[in-house]
Amino acid sequence: MTGAAAALARTPGRLRSLRTSDPVLTIAVVILGLLVAASLAGRLIPGLNDGTTTVGGRFEAPSLAHPLGTDSLGRSLVARLLEGIGTTFLLSALAVLCTAVIATALGIVAAYAGGWVRELVMRIGDVLYAFPAILLALLVAAAIGPGSTAALASIVLVTVPLMTRMVCAAATDVARRDFVTSARISGVAAPVIMVRHLLTCVSGTVVVQGTYALSVAILVEGGLSFLGYGVQLPAASLGLLVSEGNVYLLTAPWILIAAGTTMVLAILAVTLVGDALRDRLEPREAVDLT
């Protein structure tokens, strides 16, 4: 690998340069950590891991026994919320992982091949990008039926176009560099160049776009489940809880407040972390190659 390539690929080093003294970032990381810990607690700790069992009366207001109150079937909102956080995060993370794999592969191949391959990938992306996200998600959900699979597929389809475009743009810059040209002239196989040179150089972009996609994923899951096309009862997700809370907004506001606030915090935290990562990892802005 050339020196320039090595400089572009020094992502881990730049990650270490994230300043933990940034209070906003610190708060975002702490919130994100707490939410992940809460979702793990909701899966593992007895008493908190059953959001489907009735434990009290209907719509009991927050109390010592039920800190966030109960829902329309007398289920603890704490347990429902923890399950919901876990479901939403797991679904969103899985979807973003799929997006990252698909978008990275498409973006790098398009950038390396150029010509009609690049045009084809970009135009298909443009078509998908032209649809409003929630409409595209609804189309997918309507085609394959409501449920977690529909939510996952929708999120992937909504987030793939933008990430593909960003990865392709970053990879195209790298593909024009001398060290890539040298590798081509030297007879290095295309897959090797794409993996060893392009992939390592666009990893920062993938990470940044991944956090953006995670925010979108949480929103899309929320929207789909709110409309009844995503996660299905009796499972819980943040979108489902917001949907239930919306119905009982005037009589049991704690449901919407708890679920809505958690969703807001999750999206804010992910977005802030993503912004911070972008500040450090965006090669064109953060790295001086001269």
């Binding site: 953006y212 925010s215 979108v216 929103l219 929320g222 917001v242 809370g245 907004l249 005037l250 506001p253 919407l256 407040i257 679920a259 809505g260 606030t261 969703m263 807001v264 999206i267 804010l268 992910v270 977005t271 993503g274 912004d275």
Partner: peptide, 17 residues
């Protein structure tokens, strides 16, 4: 980010409850 704006909108919805 637009996401931040969307998040704030959800917060407003939650608070109006």
């Amino acid at each position: 980010s637009k996401i931040t704006v969307a998040a704030a909108a959800i917060a407003a919805l939650a608070l109006t409850a």
